[in-house]
């Protein structure tokens, strides 16, 4: 569980996150939505201790993040960042790096660590490419390799910044299935999503942000009723007869 109380973050003089309070529960998927540059990535980075907040508190599994060591944070929260490098390593090596917070010196991975990495690669359907270089994979395969690394990290809280980028529709659905499975295992999942229709259909809770502020946090139905999406994006939401939800720009 991640609990945020009155959180504010600055980049120099720029006030990126303004006085946000929210709780992301275990066994739930929370989709964070909002226009580009509204502070979503900053909020998520702060939740895993990558950005030091100027005021407010963040609690990870009821422990203040400021009282946790970097390794302890990594054992409790895993982040899939929005932008990722393509290092000159194989898929297997990348996925195995997910075990880094769990190994002490002299930093040698055990057979158990290798088995966890193998299972994660199988779950993401990339185990047949485990010996290939990341640079030789497609964008979607690379994305799945990074998600496999995240699963290998085996944390209670999982934060994903636009995980569906580069994924085709089949793998997007596959990813959603995996996230639902993780939720059923009792994990707390927070993900930035750009497809609002998908977020409404798939997430248990939705957090709507604009201009660094949290407009609303609640179930999809509560969010639809609150008109927060309309305020944040300047769009209207209507329910289709046959299909799901779609957006109409004014």
């Amino acid at each position: 569980m991640i609990k945020i109380e009155c959180l504010s973050c600055f980049y120099g003089r720029y006030h990126a996150v303004k006085n946000i309070s929210a709780t992301f529960n275990d066994g739930e998927i929370t989709a964070v939505i909002g226009p580009n540059g509204c502070g979503k990535s900053t909020l998520l980075s702060a939740c895993c201790g990558q950005i030091v907040s100027t005021s407010g508190e963040i609690l990870i599994n009821n422990t203040l993040i400021t009282e946790m060591s970097r390794t302890e944070i990594a054992q409790n929260v895993a982040l899939l960042p929005q932008f990722r490098l393509v290092p000159d390593i194989t898929v297997e090596t990348l996925v195995l790096h997910g075990r880094f917070p769990w190994i002490g010196y002299p930093r040698i991975y055990s057979n158990e660590d290798r088995e966890i990495a193998k299972q994660a690669m199988k779950r993401l359907g990339i185990h047949e490419k485990s010996n290939l270089l990341l640079s030789l994979l497609s964008g979607g395969e690379r994305q799945r390799a990074y998600i496999a690394m995240l699963l290998t990290q085996n944390t209670q809280n999982i934060i994903l910044d636009e995980p569906a980028t580069y994924l085709d529709i089949v793998h997007q659905l596959e990813l959603e299935k995996i996230l639902v499975e993780l939720k059923k295992e009792g994990k707390c999942i927070v993900t930035v999503m750009h497809n609002i229709g998908n977020a409404i259909e798939f997430a248990d809770k939705i957090a709507v942000m604009t201009n660094g502020r949290l407009l609303a946090l609640g179930t999809p139905q509560e969010i639809i009723k609150s008109n927060a999406i309309e305020q944040a994006f300047n769009v209207s939401i209507k329910k289709r007869e046959q299909y799901d939800f779609f957006l109409n720009t004014y």
Binding site: Q50, R70, A74, Q75, L85, H97, F100, P101
Partner: peptide, 21 residues
Amino acid sequence: FLSEELDILGLGEKNALSLGL
């Protein structure tokens, strides 16, 4: 001795921080 840390650093700042480095 610190080559694993160097490997993690090679993943970029955000990933390295997320892995506890």
